[in-house]
C-alpha cells in the first residue's frame, strides 16, 4: 500500500471511530442511568470487600485500598470493555443486513473494531470517571502516583477493548452456524464475567486457578488495565503486561478473521 492509500485508510477508520463515539454520546439519559447503576453496584461490592478485609491486611497482594480502587475502576471501565449484550452483527446475520455490510469497500472486521474503539472512548470518559469520583468521596481510593500511569492505563483499557471486541466478534459470527446465538452468548458472558476479574479480582483466586486465569485472554480484558491503574506492574513488567494484551488481541482478531472467511463462504443470499 502506498503512503497515500495508508493515509486514506487511516482517515476512514478515524471517521468510523468518531461516528461510534458520537452515536453513543446521543443517549445522555442512558449514560446517566448507567453511571448510577455502576456506582451503586460499586458500593455494594465495596462493602462486601470491607467485610472480607476486616480479618486480613492483605489478600493475594492487595490491601483494602487496592481492592476498593479495583472495584470502582472495574465498575467504571466495564462499559468501555462492553462485556455484555452486543449483538449487532448477529442481528445483521439474522436480518440479512450483513450482506450489504460485506459488499462495502471497507474491511468488515476493522470497520466494526474502529466503531467499537470510538464507542469505548466515549464510555471510558463518561461512564468511567463519575463512579470513580463518587467512590473516592466515600472510600479511601488509590490514585496513580506517576502521571504517565494515566496514559498507560488508557492504552491498556483500549487494548482490553480490542481483546473484548475480538471475542464478541466471534460470538456474534456464531450466528452463521447456530439458529440462536443467545445461549452461547450468555455462556460466554458467564466465562468473561468471572475470568476477566470483574466479579472479584483474579489475585483473590486460590492457587492454580489464579495462575491459569492470569494467562487467559479474559484477564487481558479487565484485570490487566485495573492492575496498570493500581501500578502493580511498572517498568519492564508494565511493558510485559501491555504486550500480553496486544498479543492476545492479535491472536484473537486473526482467529476472528478465519471465522469470518468461513462464514463468508457459507453465506447464501436469499433473493428478494
Amino acid at each position: 500500500m502506498s503512503a497515500r492509500a495508508t493515509c486514506d485508510a487511516a482517515s476512514l477508520y478515524w471517521q468510523v471511530g468518531l461516528r461510534g463515539f458520537r452515536r453513543y454520546a446521543t443517549y445522555r439519559a442512558a449514560t446517566f442511568a448507567g453511571v448510577v447503576t455502576n456506582t451503586v453496584f460499586g458500593f455494594l461490592r465495596a462493602y462486601v470487600f470491607v467485610a472480607l478485609f476486616s480479618g486480613h491486611a492483605d489478600v493475594g497482594g492487595y490491601d483494602l485500598s487496592d481492592t476498593l480502587t479495583y472495584t470502582f475502576v472495574s465498575q467504571g471501565i466495564i462499559m468501555a470493555i462492553f462485556l455484555w449484550g452486543w449483538w449487532e452483527i448477529a442481528l445483521g446475520v439474522r436480518s440479512g443486513a450483513v450482506v450489504t455490510d460485506f459488499s462495502r469497500p471497507i474491511d468488515y472486521q476493522f470497520y466494526w473494531l474502529a466503531q467499537d474503539l470510538g464507542r469505548s472512548v466515549y464510555h471510558l470518559i463518561f461512564r468511567g470517571i463519575p463512579p470513580f469520583i463518587v467512590g473516592a468521596l466515600a472510600f479511601h481510593l488509590r490514585f496513580p502516583q506517576h502521571p504517565w500511569t494515566w496514559l498507560a492505563f488508557a492504552l491498556s483499557v483500549e487494548l482490553g477493548v480490542c481483546v473484548s471486541f475480538a471475542l464478541r466478534f466471534m460470538v456474534n459470527l456464531s450466528a452463521f452456524w447456530l439458529l440462536d446465538y443467545r445461549g452461547v452468548g450468555t455462556i460466554m458472558q458467564a466465562v468473561w464475567t468471572f475470568f476477566s476479574g470483574f466479579a472479584i479480582p483474579i489475585a483473590f483466586f486460590p492457587g492454580a486457578l489464579r495462575t491459569v486465569s492470569e494467562m487467559l485472554p479474559f484477564a487481558a480484558m479487565l484485570a490487566t488495565p485495573v492492575n496498570v491503574f493500581l501500578e502493580k506492574a511498572q517498568g519492564l513488567d508494565l511493558a510485559a503486561a501491555l504486550a500480553f494484551q496486544a498479543g492476545w488481541a492479535v491472536v484473537l482478531l486473526l482467529v476472528g478473521r478465519l471465522m469470518l472467511a468461513a462464514a463468508t463462504r457459507k453465506v447464501v443470499i436469499q433473493g428478494g
Binding site: 443467545r182 466479579a199 472479584i200
Partner: peptide, 27 residues
C-alpha cells in the same frame, strides 16, 4: 436453543456464587 439458554442462565448466575466461594477461600 432452549437448553443452551438454560445452561447460559445457570452459568451466568453461578458467577455470583463463585464470588462467595472465592471470599470464603480466605476466611
Amino acid at each position: 436453543s432452549f437448553v443452551l439458554q438454560l445452561v447460559g442462565s445457570f452459568s451466568l448466575s453461578f458467577t455470583d456464587f463463585a464470588v462467595v466461594l472465592v471470599i470464603f477461600a480466605h476466611l
